[in-house]
């Protein structure tokens, strides 16, 4: 019975998310859109407490929601309108981190998983970690934290980044293909490299280009959430995540286009030192 109520609630939440986003896409009823989506989120969260898949740690759950939600509520309400973009980056990074952490919990258990589940767990972990650390750097840049502001470049940067990315993917594949045989050390290094790659990828991008980059990380977090939804067998997460992944990708392209730059220029700074040095 509980299972039925839970699944029905998740279904309603998924409907509300899509309806809310659709509303937000038209100027006149944009505000009611976020409220519908918000109602869906509250429903899904509250009903999860009676989800039969959960068998404990309720206190920690409430504590986590209270602390995380409380801090976010406080900062979100107080931040100046002009500082909104970096707050979006911060909250988005938290979502990516959460998706990666879910993957970490599942992979730490090293239980027998179907191959497709294990592969998507690893993929979601990679994407989520990159979105997490990348978004934090984007936040730091827009916040004007000195160490990260401006365009940070060094020799052979793209080669180093490509090598780093290749190594991370390789480790991910090793984990995905080795059933329950991978070592926890491999897992640790995999997560570490993915986090470092997110930082390295964002460092060379200037402050003026950040909105496009944040939008990209938003789409990536969506993908990661969708993949982890598959791992946990939760269709609401799959739908919401992939809808955001695809909507975010299109939005990233539209934003880059509005700036008259192809997205590859933003990411790989093909104009050399001339791009995005507004800060």
């Amino acid at each position: 019975m509980n299972n039925l109520i839970v699944n029905l609630s998740y279904f309603i939440a998924a409907v509300l998310f899509i309806y809310g986003l659709k509303q937000m896409a038209s100027p006149n009823n944009a505000r009611s859109g976020i409220q519908w989506a918000g109602a869906g989120m509250v429903l899904a969260t509250v009903i999860t407490f009676i989800n039969p898949a959960i068998h404990g740690n309720y206190i920690l759950m409430i504590l986590g929601i209270g602390i995380g939600g409380g801090i976010a509520w406080y900062t979100g309400k107080r931040v100046a309108m002009t500082d909104m973009p970096q707050m979006i980056a911060l909250y988005n990074g938290m979502g990516g981190g959460a998706a990666a952490a879910i993957a970490a919990v599942e992979l730490l258990k090293r239980h027998e998983l179907p191959f497709s589940v294990q592969l998507l767990a690893v993929l979601g972990a990679l994407i989520g970690s990159v979105a997490f650390s990348g978004s934090l750097i984007a936040f730091a840049k827009l916040q004007g934290i000195k160490a990260f502001s401006g365009v940070i470049r060094f020799k052979n940067q793209q080669m180093v980044n490509a090598a780093l990315f290749g190594l991370t993917v390789l480790l991910g594949l090793v984990i995905a293909f080795s059933g329950t045989e991978y070592s926890l050390f491999t897992l640790f290094i995999f997560f570490l490299l993915a986090l470092i790659f997110g930082v390295m990828m964002t460092l060379p991008i200037g402050g003026a280009d950040m909105p496009v980059v944040i939008s990209l990380y938003n789409a990536l977090t969506g993908l990661a959430v969708g993949f982890e939804g598959y791992v946990l067998g939760n269709p609401a997460m799959m739908i919401a995540g992939i809808v955001v992944g695809s909507a975010g990708t299109l939005l990233t392209q539209l934003m880059a286009k509005a700036m008259n730059r192809p997205i590859s220029n933003v990411l790989f700074s093909q104009f050399g030192g001339s791009t995005g040095e507004a800060q």
Binding site: F17, M24, A25, M41, T48, N218, V244
Partner: peptide, 25 residues
């Protein structure tokens, strides 16, 4: 509406909370 929509979709993938609760549970 680009930035508000980015923010709105950022909220929607907050559904990861449900997954996080299950993982913790």
């Amino acid at each position: 509406l680009h930035t508000p929509l980015m923010s709105g979709s950022n909220f929607v993938h907050g559904i990861v909370l449900v997954g996080a609760m299950v993982a913790l549970g």
